[in-house]
Design a protein around this nucleic acid. Sequence first.
DNA 1: GCGCAGGGGGTCG
DNA 2: CGACCCCCTGCG
Length: 278
Amino acid sequence: MIYRYKAEDICLEHIFECGQTFRWRPAKNISGDAGHPEVYEGVCGGYFARVSLNDGVLTVDATGGDEEFWFNYFDLGRDYGEVKRVLSEKEPKILEATKQGYGIRILNQDFYEMLISFIISQNNNIPRIRKCIEAICEEYGEIIPGTDRYAFPKPEVLAAADVSRLAELKLGYRCPYIVESSKRFLEVGLPVENDTAALKKELLKYHGVGPKVADCIMLFGLGRVDAFPIDVWVKRIMNDMYGFELNDLKGMQAFAAEKFGEIGGLAQQYLFYYYREM
DNA sequence: GCGCAGGGGGTCG
DNA sequence: CGACCCCCTGCG
């Protein structure tokens, strides 16, 4: 099915390359406006999709989902112009970052997929994260009919996976985390906590999920835009921009909450993307 | 060319 | 606070 949406403040390259998702890539031999690849192909949960942007119209050609699903996935209900205004008002220094990261949007992704993906991301680099995730999908996910891509594996499958077979996918010490966390997810289901701090505490119970990964799961898998993931890049940013000691996680977290409030996660994405490009 | 640190969107014990 | 699986990079 094909779905079309009128959209502002959207750039596919910035959305798919800012590190929030790992299964999208530019379609070969198709280039769009302003030198940006404006056609991407990827897998979201169990759906394959080809996505393009032309004259402010987002086109999603997908094997599943519906109009509302993709509207929500691309966070089209949020006014990012307003987000940028608010952020720049709170912190003028961020204006440059919002220009550079023009069109970034926080994707509303599947909780379990984010749980496993960001467990894999720990102490790892983006190209290898992508490889690991593709490998686990090919090995444990179902092929999507009419494509050469595989759905993200179901929790039941990974919960029952043999650790030694998982290890063949070069997931390293993360293998037991993946199996244990899948089991736990099957037991406890989606978290229900309303309060962000309580929610984070709950996520930290997953083996292999620490503060940074928990924040990513909340931001990308639970729509909590107040979550502010602090990774090595954000540490450098906070050090560089505000003089925080590199190990002063608490100070940074408190500062972000104070400075960016309810939309800290959006500020984080702009800053992260901005600094990674330099 | 090749071997070896060093480090990567951290977490655990 | 050190170790950790694995991969890639830079340096001698």
